[in-house]
Amino acid sequence: MDILVSSVVAGVLIGMVLALVALGLTIIFGVMDIVNFAHGEFLMLGMYTGLLTADATGMDPLLGIPVAAVVGYLLGIACYWGFIRFLLRGPMVAQLLGTFGLMLLLRNLALLLFGSEDRGVNAGLLVGKSVAFGMGVIVPATKLAAAALSLVSFAAVWLLMNRTRVGKALTATALNAQAARYMGIPTERMNALAWGIGGATVTVAGALIVNFWSVNPYVGLLFTMIAFTIVALGGFGSVPGALAAGIVVGLLMEIPGIWDFVAYATEWDWMMDVPVTSFKYTFVYLAYFVIMVVRPRGLFGWKH
């Protein structure tokens, strides 16, 4: 029983963080119908930002979060004005190859700057501590904080999108950019803002994740794939959908734990013999594949 509850709790917590990872991807897609293959690379840079801020200042890695938000926001805006803006005028294939190129550029830049070895946070306020919830559920403090701060970030973005003038303008741009221009909304600036928010949220997610996950320049791809799955599941462009889908994907990643629980409970030897832990991400990719085949518009609907 302990394993089951632990797995579910762990899945929900990591799911909240993964939802934040995907949030920017879904916002950017929602506003300008462009798929950002470099999304995971933004996350990787967020991880390095958190790590290096802690290293450089000797402060807690959690303090790297606001720094990561600023870096991600500026990076997103710069990518839009310097690069993406031109891609939008081109054909679909140019957009795909363009953001793919951005991915390679950022990855190799990271290799050049930070080297290829794995690096992690090994000291900090929360590192190594854990919180016991009873029923045998013990959660590392870093993961608990990451989940909580992800929820806070999510709520902040939701409020920005739904309760502010600029957020409404962003929504209008997503729904119909030409109509938005007829309202006097500067849609180019809205696109840039979407990249800024997208960049900031995913780098914040990176700065949260680096507290319990080591970073190297190649770590982005895994998260890009996970984010794609979440966006497909939650509906392209849907903010609440991303949160729900993030939690679902978090639970999918905990299937090995649940598997172990079933194996022990039933004492089925064949289940214990399957090295299911090595297939942790297979379930995520499998889900992505199934969604794409069965319901390409996403399980929770579409932006329109």
């Binding site: 929504t171 209008a172 729904l175 109509a179 007829y182 309202m183 006097g184 909304i185 329109h304």
Partner: peptide
């Protein structure tokens, strides 16, 4: 017309006053 379909009547009107 080019309305913002999923948004409410009032939200559409308010967007008209964006400037």
């Amino acid at each position: 017309r080019m309305l913002f379909g999923p948004l409410s009547v009032e939200e559409n009107l308010r967007l008209g006053a964006y400037v």
